[in-house]
Design a protein around this nucleic acid. Structure first.
Length: 464
DNA sequence: CGTTGACCTCC
DNA sequence: GAGGTCAAC
């Protein structure tokens, strides 16, 4: 049995504006982080290591679990029956100690392999404060909401893990997605350690999911197994995708789609569109070549549509301009950016691209990062933060009804009469009507009635 | 070629 | 219905 212990805490100076793990780890990017009950400690297996994180206003604290028997890096064949896990006695470490034990600052990086790992995973070189400032400068709606949602940054996850997780995400909620991913790891992933009665596994590679070695023939019943685990129709997608990636693509194919400069974020990019040129890699509102290519290649896999492909591009492959347009973002586009009024009702391919292009034009090279902030602000889980704001906002507001088109559903739109900053230009090349009112100082009150609006939009969406 | 259901569970 | 995708009109 594997019994080990955590290393001592180390700390890294990071402000909450630069990184807020409590938000970033819960906003639907990764579905693997586990919040240790009654604590602010988060645990997850990254690259075969069990990591533990916590933070205070000035630092990020981290430690890693050291099993007495080093974890074998084998690609974990068959599943260790989860039952054995419970038999393991709890480890010695205290339940969520305040960061006071032995804390060392990583002055000597020699014996600390975790720091570079975290730096990459959290994309730490990117200066989030600067990015927020840029987006706020060009977008009043972002400027209004962002203060309640600071420290949200895009994770640099393993591409394969992101791919599978987001295939699971279709028609699904965060809680169940997390559950499914957990089951997948337990069944196919390498066992790493058991701590506090909970077993931790690594995320299995594609080759581990092409067939159960147990059952003899290859390709046997990964789908059936996953269905048994409650994956529903996604079981087939995962089985097929695993087979394609493991057997029909060369080694490292997926990683090869990664943005080569994904670490070098943080410098003042071409925010705001036409303005800033002169960056490495030609910028287009539809995204760079490499991003478009990666997106196209991902679409060839099973269970991967435009939205999932963009999630993988953004969170798994380092393409900051990828803007996944799901039902939430589509709502945001309509509610806060006057998208798709009247004419188009459903989110089709053309409209999907148009929304992405619009946000890329507005937010620039890291549009996907900005998107995740507004996306999170739109999640029910975090809606309380907005309630606090909207009550404060005592702006003069003019309420007027617009004709919602011929769908018979009225969409109440509230617009302030405040300053209208002239916008460079609306999207005309898209062939889609977009009112150029993004930069108006509006939307303050829209947040107040957020829940209501959301429900109404939701209805309207599915009405069609 | 754009639109419409079905698809697996669970809250 | 839920943070879509696929296949059939």
């Amino acid at each position: 049995m594997t019994v080990g212990a955590f290393s001592e805490w180390r700390k890294l100076p990071v402000s909450l504006s630069e990184l807020c793990i409590n938000t970033t780890l819960r906003c639907g990017q990764s579905f693997r982080w586990h919040n240790v009950p009654d604590s602010d400690e988060w645990r997850c297996v990254l690259h075969g290591r069990l990591l533990s994180l916590k933070q205070d206003p000035t630092h990020l604290y981290y430690r890693t679990y050291l099993p007495s028997h080093p974890p074998q890096n084998t690609i974990s064949p068959p599943p260790p029956p989860p039952k054995t896990a419970a038999a393991i006695p709890p480890t010695q470490q205290k339940a969520s100690p305040p960061p006071t034990d032995h804390i060392s600052t990583p002055t000597n990086d020699d014996d600390d392999p975790i720091l570079p790992l975290l730096t990459a995973y959290f994309n730490l070189p990117a200066n989030l404060t600067t990015l927020y400032e840029g987006w706020s400068q060009h977008d009043a709606n972002f400027r209004r909401k962002a203060p309640q949602f600071t420290g949200i940054r895009i994770l640099r996850q393993d591409a394969w893990e992101a791919l599978i997780a987001f295939i699971c995400s279709s028609n699904n909620n965060i809680a169940r997605i997390s559950q499914m991913v957990e089951k997948l790891c337990r069944r196919y992933g390498a066992f790493v350690a058991t701590v506090d009665g909970r077993a931790y596994h690594d995320f299995p590679g594609p080759e581990a999911m092409v067939g159960d070695a147990d059952d003899g023939e290859e390709g046997v019943d990964v789908e059936a197994t996953l269905r048994g685990l409650g994956f529903g129709y996604r079981a087939k997608y995962i089985g097929q995708t695993a087979r394609i990636v493991a057997l029909e693509r060369e080694e490292g194919w997926l990683e090869g789609l990664r943005n080569p400069e994904s670490v070098a974020l943080g410098y003042a990019g071409s925010l705001g569109g036409e303005g800033g040129s002169g960056d490495a890699g030609e910028w287009k509102e539809e995204g760079r070549e490499g991003y478009r290519l990666a997106h196209a290649k991902l679409l060839e896999l099973q269970g991967v549509g435009p939205k999932v492909a963009d999630c993988v591009c953004l969170m798994g492959l380092g393409w900051g301009e990828a803007v996944p347009v799901d039902t939430h973002v589509w709502q945001i586009a309509q509610r806060d950016y006057k998208f798709g009024k009247g004419s188009h009702k459903s989110l089709n391919k053309v409209l999907y691209d148009a929304v992405g292009n619009h946000f890329r034009r507005l937010w620039g090279k890291e549009a996907g990062w900005a998107q995740s902030v507004l996306f999170t602000a739109n999640l029910r889980t975090f809606s309380d933060r907005l309630a606090a704001t909207s009550s404060k906002v005592g702006v003069k507001v003019e309420v007027k009804d617009e004709e919602g088109g011929n769908d018979g559903v009225e969409v109440k739109t509230e617009v302030t009469t405040a300053t209208a900053i002239p916008l460079k230009r609306a999207a005309s090349e898209d062939g889609v009507k977009v009112k150029a009112e993004d930069d108006t100082d509006t939307h303050a009150v829209l947040q107040a009635s957020q829940t209501t609006t959301t429900r109404r939009m939701s209805k309207r969406l599915r009405k069609r």
